[in-house]
Design a protein around this nucleic acid. Sequence first.
DNA 1: CAAAATAAATGTAAAATAAACACTTATATA
DNA 2: TATATAAGTGTTTATTTTACATTTATTTTG
Lengths: 229, 229
Amino acid sequence: MYKGYIPEDKVFLAVDCIIFGFDDEDLKVLLIQRDFEPEKGKWSLMGGFLKQNETLDDAASRILYRLTGMHDIYMEQLYAFSEVDRDPVARTISTSYYAIINIEKHNEKLIESHNAKWFSLSKVPNLIFDHNEMLDKAIKRLRRRTSINPIGFELLPEKFTMRQLQKLYEAILDKELDKRNFINKIRSMDILIKLNEKDMTSSTKGSYLHMFDQEKYNQKNDNDFYLKL
Amino acid sequence: MYKGYIPEDKVFLAVDCIIFGFDDEDLKVLLIQRDFEPEKGKWSLMGGFLKQNETLDDAASRILYRLTGMHDIYMEQLYAFSEVDRDPVARTISTSYYAIINIEKHNEKLIESHNAKWFSLSKVPNLIFDHNEMLDKAIKRLRRRTSINPIGFELLPEKFTMRQLQKLYEAILDKELDKRNFINKIRSMDILIKLNEKDMTSSTKGSYLHMFDQEKYNQKNDNDFYLKL
DNA sequence: CAAAATAAATGTAAAATAAACACTTATATA
DNA sequence: TATATAAGTGTTTATTTTACATTTATTTTG
């Protein structure tokens, strides 16, 4: 893609995806290493261009699918970035979306073939263009969203322990939470199913596994229920 | 603008502005009556197309200025609307912005020349395209924003009474507030200057006028201070 | 096989915040 | 001078949030 080939008055429409996952007590983001110019070799968010007959939502889902092989993922439009020189090659407006996915479920091969890698939030390198800004905005939004709607469950395996859930919230909100207060609050939401099954990997005693009760959640969500953490 | 003249693969980039004002105990929105096709005669938000060398923020400010004659107004990007058929004439993606302005300060002539009119939120007509959806989203965002940062002051005259301020918040949040609790809360924020001057139009006793203390507000805002109403 | 080590599970009291509530005051007008 | 109108002001109660420590189940180790 060279400057000479681009009509002067063309504005390109891109979509960039901030893909969050949770693993190993850490909130992570999926980045790709560019194998094309400009900025070849540098890390960036996964992105692409809008097609003629798709919405921005469609484009975001398509891009996410291309990288992870995953469908039906929670995504949310974040912000349209439009600084005139944000992309040095051509005028490009990028609408960013963030997604939260279960890190265990994605397609490893696809990720490898895109030179993609998960980065802990504290270890994110300098990204191309305004992608660091996009990421910052996404983190802020995710935090706010998580303390209102409990979307965080998307980031966990189907069955999880209370400790895992707490670690997830601590990672998202970037602060330590009191174990008892956390459990009481979660219990009061009444959207978890406690299973008669224990995870024995974390301790000798073992800890009960829980599932997210999608049905109860939907019921409550209709009535604007929300959580404050 | 006729379909025949538009290249098939062209995507237009528009910006639409939801302009809020406050008057007469009512939260209002400024709408224009279209004097061109399609949907001539119907009401819509004020909008325009992005220019080659401006950001979306620039475009939103320019559009607001064209209609109201006002500069340096609080504006916030809302959402990019991208349904493929949202505009029947041509594929157009519109990024919406909302603005809040002091209804006394705008330029009446400009507004008249655009066939524009202020509508109370409860009396907004059917708008073209997806503009009602844009407005709904803007109201929700304004409510959330107002209960976090006290941006509402932009909607009042420079000097205002506590009653006016309360009415404004009641209009934005669409619920009645207790007079004493409201005043205590506002006082505790410590961002108002009480003047030695009374407004005598509202009662025989008269009520003290207040001003917003921009300096104190800025100081507090730096430290993530916020308000919950 | 007893002791130690590890993480899980659980409830209550104190503090902070939010909500409910009613009377007095100043002034213009009747 | 009596009345009507909106302004101004604090306290009590209810709710929510925060702080905090001990017991339990099981495996590992000595």
